[in-house]
Nucleic acid binder design. Structure first.
Length: 330
DNA sequence: TCGATTTGACCTTA
DNA sequence: TAAGGTCAAATCGA
């Protein structure tokens, strides 16, 4: 299996970042997605060869149907991987920001901060590991277990969010609920203590929501907030943040090809040169990229740029629109 | 004075 | 038994 180099960090610092869970996660995703796409290409080539070499194949409906199903299945898996990775785009961008701060890499520092309550990436503990999910916006997809991690305990309803730390403040940004700190503890092998909070309505309404907050050793500008238990109080003194979908759902409401068209037009409008410089749907052009990747080479910068545009346009529904439910949404 | 925070002791769990 | 999680008295600040 070939691997993709993200080309984000200076060579000298690659090793230290390779241990970063985000980098491992994204590399894992990229390898999985690429593997599925290559599978689909391989099946398509086999089908093409069969059609060219054997005249009978063209009339073998079963064979044609099975080949098509295999191709569609492989692409569907790639789409599933893209969905999962898209849900982590804010995490990746936050990582790049941290990397940029640490290394002075202008590419990293140029990444905008995307974290908002409705876009925060979250990690949910589930059977066999951790699942990354979007928190906040209702109806968001839940991912499968992506990164195996040993854990001492396994609880229901645990979610972990990474949020940027407020300058000169230990407290995480307001998440819409009121919390009371009930403890702080030094954690083994951690430079920073962990703070424990429970909902201020614990005693009045028996709300069992709790959270613990810890600054990441490697990224002090990032807080890991672990939520345990759901709020049952529904009487928060501060307004609960309601995702504003008015700006983001335009193209998803279109759905299907219209939605995909709108999403692509959005990309084209924002970065016309990316589209003009490459014919993304040209077979030979795309084959060159596949071969480039198969050869272990680094991804063409424009590919990364295109992906970056897709992610940083800020629309959660861009990919959703392109890969509409009718087109094999997992 | 009251509510929030700190901190050391105790409890729980792997 | 060690480490994480919680309790509750002491402390702080508005």
């Amino acid at each position: 299996m070939t691997s993709l180099s993200l080309s984000v960090y200076p060579a000298s610092s690659k090793k230290s970042y390779a241990s970063n869970p985000f980098v491992r996660l994204i590399q894992w995703h990229m390898e999985e997605i690429l593997s599925r796409i290559l599978d689909a290409c391989k099946i398509a080539r086999e089908l093409e060869s069969s059609l060219l070499l054997y005249v009978d194949v063209a009339s073998d409906a079963h064979y044609l149907l099975r080949s098509c199903e295999e191709i569609v299945g492989a692409f569907n898996k790639a789409v599933h991987g893209l969905y999962a990775m898209q849900s982590q785009a804010p995490s990746v961008q936050m990582l790049l920001m941290s990397a940029g701060e640490a290394t002075g890499n202008p590419f990293c520092t140029g990444v905008p901060a995307p974290i908002s309550p409705e876009n925060q990436p979250a990690v949910t503990e589930s059977e066999g590991g951790l699942s990354y999910v979007h928190s906040g916006a209702p109806g968001q997809r839940k991912g499968k277990s992506l990164v195996p991690r040993s854990s001492k305990k396994r609880h229901e309803g645990i979610s972990i969010e990474l949020v940027p730390a407020q300058p000169n403040m230990e407290n995480p940004p307001d998440d819409g609920y009121t919390w009371k700190k009930y403890g702080q503890k030094e954690i083994l092998n951690s430079r920073f203590p962990r703070s424990y909070y429970h909902c201020t309505h614990k005693h009045h309404h028996g709300c069992k929501a709790k959270k613990k907050v810890q600054r990441l050793d490697d990224y002090p500008s990032t807080l890991e907030v672990t939520y345990c238990g759901a709020h049952t109080c529904r009487t928060s003194l501060t307004p609960i943040l309601i995702p504003n979908d008015n700006n983001n759902n335009d193209d998803s409401q279109l759905g299907g090809h219209l939605g995909a068209q709108a999403a692509v037009q959005k990309v084209v409008a924002s970065q016309p040169s990316l589209i003009q410089d490459h014919n993304w749907f040209d077979r030979e052009d795309s084959s060159r990229y596949i071969e480039q990747m198969q050869g272990g080479g680094e991804v063409d910068c424009s590919v990364a740029e295109f992906a970056d545009v897709m992610f940083t346009l800020g629309s959660n529904s861009t990919l959703e629109a392109i890969f509409s439910p009718s087109q094999g949404k997992p």
